[in-house]
Write a protein that binds this DNA or RNA. Structure first.
Lengths: 113, 113
DNA sequence: CTTTTGTGCTACTAAATATGTAGCACAGAA
DNA sequence: TTCTGTGCTACATATTTAGTAGCACAAAAG
């Protein structure tokens, strides 16, 4: 895996050189499994393998890569006892994720005619 | 580009067979440039090329692919005169995107010590 | 002590996806 | 007719992701 640099605010990222925080997070969350990982950790910390199971057996290569990036961005932290869990910063993102979930429900109800 | 099926609610998607709407949207928005495209269209419709420019010269291949998926999901529509714009459904997602932007600002302020 | 189980993690090859460049057909304006 | 701008496509290349196997370590069980 030729690992691209983890997107961080105030740094140029893939698709934007401005360093604007929104660009960094759009890059980070636009990578496969990033959003899903945050979603699966919304209730409680999970171990590497539990998280892997929750994400439909995502390959450990990518999971490891995403965890590394999310840790670099301080969105998740790793505690030897608990496993991987959302940081305080990431928990402030939870209402947004839940709003996304609510939105998805209405989106679904519109798809079915 | 071997195009994967566009994620839709009530259908199995990459990473989840449940058909739950949140899984479809996590798959869709987790593809490169998806979130960015919605973000760039937040204020007004853009033509293909304007959108391409806004997204840091993203290659037309991928842009075309994403637009196709987002149209299949009824998140964006194409009007001959206007270009590409958010659907009514997608506009209801805008507060969430703006919340993400706000969150990113505080996230950034925490990174710099 | 020896085995078993669970942890995080890595190497390696193959497949899928994104990138970059060039260019097409069409429409409207000059 | 020529010039722009539109949406879009082909193709070769590079990057990212997937899939499989397995490692070292630690704690618990036998």
């Amino acid at each position: 895996m030729a690992s691209p640099k983890p997107p961080l605010p105030h740094h140029p990222v893939r698709g934007s050189t401005t360093g604007r925080p929104i660009m960094a997070i759009l890059d980070l969350l636009g990578r496969r499994w990033s959003l899903r990982i945050l979603w699966e950790l919304r209730d409680e910390p999970l171990t590497f393998r539990a998280l892997q199971g929750a994400c439909d057996a995502v390959s450990p290569t990518v999971l490891q890569q995403r965890l590394k990036e999310l840790r670099a961005a301080r969105l998740i932290s790793h505690d030897a006892g608990q496993g991987y869990g959302l940081s305080a910063t990431a928990r402030r993102l939870l209402p947004t994720l839940l709003a996304l979930n609510d939105w998805a429900e209405t989106w679904a109800s519109e798809e079915e005619h």
